[in-house]
């Protein structure tokens, strides 16, 4: 693969540990896991929009985009979020498996 260096991937998580499960919502997930494929660095970012009544999706997009993420793994994306991410050229990966833990997903990404 070309240009795999310095790629950051965001994963929505239900908690701030590697054993937490993949959160099926994007905007209101508990925590974002920012995984850097080049350094293997894993960072947990708590989502301030967790209990927002409105506009959680766009606010989360802003949070994630500010960290120069190129790919987001979540269970579902709302349509506001979809059009925003399309414009930002961030790839969306939808994985409908609430039983997958963050550790599993990071292992999959290491393929």
């Amino acid at each position: 693969m070309i240009k795999i260096t310095n790629m950051k991937i965001a994963i929505t998580s239900t908690g701030d540990s590697l054993e937490s499960k993949l959160d099926q919502r994007f905007g209101r997930c508990a925590c974002f896991v920012i995984y850097d494929t080049s350094t293997g660095n894993i960072e947990f970012v708590l989502n301030p929009n967790k209990d927002a009544t409105e506009g959680a999706g766009p606010a989360s997009v802003q949070l994630v985009a500010s960290r120069n993420v190129e790919k987001i793994i979540s269970g579902e994306f709302g349509f506001k979020v979809k059009s925003l991410l399309d414009n930002l050229k961030i790839q969306m990966v939808v994985l409908k498996d609430p039983e997958k833990s963050i550790r599993d997903i990071i292992n999959m990404l290491k393929h």
Binding site: M1, I73, Q91, L95, M108, L109
Partner: peptide, 23 residues
């Protein structure tokens, strides 16, 4: 392979590999 859905924004042409499991 892994049952995920993904899109391919910004890149022209079809992707060859799954962005999650590389299949």
């Amino acid at each position: 392979d892994c049952g995920c859905f993904f899109n391919n924004p910004g890149n022209k042409g079809n992707p060859e590999k799954c962005p999650l499991c590389g299949s």
